[in-house]
Write a protein that binds this DNA or RNA. Structure first.
Lengths: 178, 178, 178, 178
DNA sequence: AATGAATGAGGTTTCATTCAT
DNA sequence: AATGAATGAAACCTCATTCAT
């Protein structure tokens, strides 16, 4: 059993059964190991949780994302959407998102991470819309305003695993494409 | 001590200290009462929580909201915004919102309530935008799309107590007012 | 089960089985009660121990002791000896003495109490010897010096339950009686 | 890492942090080694402790001590005092003394060792006082009695690291020197 | 000579709950 | 209407020890 295996299982429990079901007993049992063994790898339950945060903060929140703006608007938007959907449906990331959504009201770190996650979507949205607008492919006047609205919608749908997100994005394209 | 007093204090703890800090001990102590006394009023902790849900589902989620569309668009939107802000900043409601946000990943009822809450905002937004659009006061073509985006943004800002919500709404008005 | 009963049993365990055998499990079992019940009466194990200290500090260390110096030297010394022996053989006090002797190297409070206990013996010894000396019944020149030596010997014998303490005191009287 | 290094560090922990802080984990960590490594050198924690006892019983308690009684009383006493102070302040011995003082109520071996240690002081004191008395340099009649008192005082002061021990011995000399 | 990994036993504490009063 | 007292279950954690490598 490695640190990573423990973290993975801990994440799985948090996402599938809920944060408050993550107990050292449950974790040990799920790993087919005795409780005490967990303490060989981690000093405390808290350390496990902090490591989960760290792991994902260093990964998910620092993902870079490049778009080829020479492509048509359809393609640009589809690419972005795929990118986001992949991020949010990725097994590992979904653990993190579940964690911070459950803990954001209680744990300042989670709260900050929720903010960062939203900001990631918003800033990427703005970059895309800005570019498309500048290249006169979008009939949008107030880009920052539109970006905020677009990002909010996308963010909410991603977090809630709302499957109609594709439909929304296509609608958006249709409506604002010049 | 009444059922209501217990519920109020339980809500306060959930909102101010977090759901997992709501223990029968903490609740009793906060009420200046012994633990056992709580069981005179409620059969279990679960009953307290379910009652909290019920109380707010019957109140907050069924709030009706009427707008006087004879007023100018500014006034209509301002009124709606005030209405929403009042709802979300209301002490009692903030308890509920905090509860469902903390429990939505774990508790199906909370998940459903989060959905309902969002829907409330969305349907009211749509009604307003629809009306303003029909009366030609808004330059919006696709009202459902715009409503979704508007509602998502407003909802996120309300939940996060983002104080720039006024600014957002005014920007929106400026941009889409004919 | 009362607080006092718990304290009594805790003391008994410390004295008879050793400080490190005082566990909440052992204590509960000895009292015919479940572990959790102890926490109704005390917030923590530490609280039990501090209460043991307090109980005895307020009792044993503040014992007043009056001697009738009109009696003969034999009687005065016998009385003092009985007084001390009673104190040290008293069941409750022996618990405290055992506690502080076991903890004095680890726990500052115990260390201070050991000091106080010795001082009690020393100051009472000095008072007695001083009086007997002033009334010319003792052939002692340097009373403080002699008191210190006498008190040290008595203290060590009391703590170690050395049964030859009577013999020592009688020897002392014989030797220094005018 | 040698057996001796382990014993030294174990002793250091006992003296500086207290017997109950001596855990195999703490010991290993202090030695910059993994827990399991300790079991290469010792079969058990108990073996470490027994070895500590043995080591010091064979050393400290069997120390011989010779005095040159041709010197003046001042010198004889000063020499004895230095001898004792050196023993008790010696780093290695202080470990042992701390150990037996902490364990004497719990561990019979410690109890016996405390007795032996005291006896060492007492018998050496008696030898000195006897000699000085026989050679008419002390105005002491009952040497055994005086020795016991002197030894008790010295012992207590040594164990408690009472720095006024010099003052006490000088007072004693002044008072009983012929 | 050392250690990575695991573990059984047991430690303190918290929790929701019960029940006689 | 309230509570004093108790409790089973389970939480987190520590400890000495083992064993294959």
């Amino acid at each position: 059993m490695t640190r990573t295996e423990i973290l993975t299982e801990a994440g799985r429990i948090i996402r599938d059964e809920g944060y408050d079901r993550l107990t050292m007993s449950a974790l040990a049992q799920a790993l087919g190991v005795r409780k005490a063994s967990l303490y060989y790898h981690f000093q405390s339950k808290e350390e496990i949780i902090q490591e989960l945060y760290e792991h994902f903060e260093n990964g998910l929140l620092h993902l870079s994302f490049s778009v080829d703006f020479s492509k048509s608007m359809d393609v640009v938007m589809s690419t972005a959407l795929s990118h986001w959907k992949n991020i949010f449906s990725d097994k590992e990331n979904s653990v993190f998102i579940s964690l911070i959504e459950q803990r954001k009201e209680t744990d300042e770190r989670a709260w900050a991470d929720v903010g960062s996650l939203y900001l990631m979507i918003e800033s990427q949205s703005e970059a895309i819309l800005e570019n498309l607008s500048v290249s006169s492919r979008l009939k949008i006047m107030n880009v920052p305003l539109m970006s905020k609205m677009f990002a909010s919608t996308v963010y909410l749908m991603l977090v809630n695993e709302d499957e109609s997100i594709d439909q929304f994005v296509y609608s958006f394209i249709e409506n604002f494409l010049k």
